[in-house]
Computed example of a mutant assay.
Amino acid sequence: MFTGIIETLGHVTNLKQELENLHITVESTITSELKIDQSVAHNGVCLTIVNIDTNCYTVTAIKETLDKTNIGNLELFDTVNLERAMKLGDRLDGHIVQGHVDQTAECISIKETQGSWLFTFKYDSTLNNITIEKGSITVNGVSLTVVNSKRDTFSVAIIPYTYEHTNFKTFKIGSIINLEFDVIGKYVSRLNALKS
């Protein structure tokens, strides 16, 4: 379980394909505090640490993960958002995030406003995921509030702190990002689909 509050950034130092799996090595300031078998969210994708070597650690993404997320698009030196699993009893500063990405989306607009940025994303609405105005959404692991919710697009407003301390600063028009929709909204959507 995660909160969507990014703890730090990591940098991809190695990518190794093995059959259908991708082993991803990440350099991070939190590596010394990690343990093998621990879960860490990478751009919102929960992955298990399989190896630690000084200031780098390795996780493995299977085909299902590579097919449904942007993890398979990673390149050497890319920046990833990192969050360790929350501790029981900690404050929930973001919202309930499972680390299970529902689908990807494309960045279609970036507007710099006076003191913040407005990012707009387009996603495949046929997968029955929904956003609601002022609801929660996780974008590349970042817990955010939805603005301008439409059938297949939504926007989020990014403050300078979030912009500087996440990989939002690397987004361009056409960037593919991970989405985890609000867990309560997913259950409501599924129940409605079953009634139809």
Rank of each mutant, 00 (worst) to 15 (best):
Q17M: 11
Q17P: 08
V142Q: 08
Y163H: 11
S149R: 12
L179Y: 04
T126P: 02
H100A: 12
Y57W: 12
F181M: 05
R190N: 15
I137N: 00
C107P: 00
Q103W: 07
F77G: 08
Q98F: 04
G115S: 03
C56D: 14
I158N: 04
L118Q: 15
T120F: 08
L191H: 10
D78Y: 04
K172A: 11
E133R: 03
E7K: 15
K186E: 11
T31H: 06
T113P: 00
T31Y: 01
F171T: 09
I49F: 07
D93T: 13
C46S: 13
I108D: 02
F171K: 14
L92I: 14
N70A: 07
R84L: 09
N192E: 12
I132G: 04
I110T: 05
T13N: 10
S32N: 14
C107N: 04
L118E: 15
E180M: 10
A157V: 13
E7H: 09
F181L: 07
I132T: 14
F168D: 02
T54L: 13
E106M: 11
I52C: 05
Y161M: 06
T138I: 14
L191C: 12
E27H: 05
V139S: 09
I71Q: 03
N55W: 06
I24R: 03
V12L: 08
I49Q: 01
Y123S: 10
F171N: 08
L9Y: 00
G141Y: 01
G89K: 00
L82T: 05
I24A: 07
E180K: 10
V156R: 00
T29P: 15
N81S: 09
S143L: 01
T3M: 09
F154N: 01
T58L: 11
E180C: 10
N51L: 13
D124Y: 05
S196P: 06
I49M: 09
T104Y: 03
Q98M: 06
R190W: 09
N192H: 13
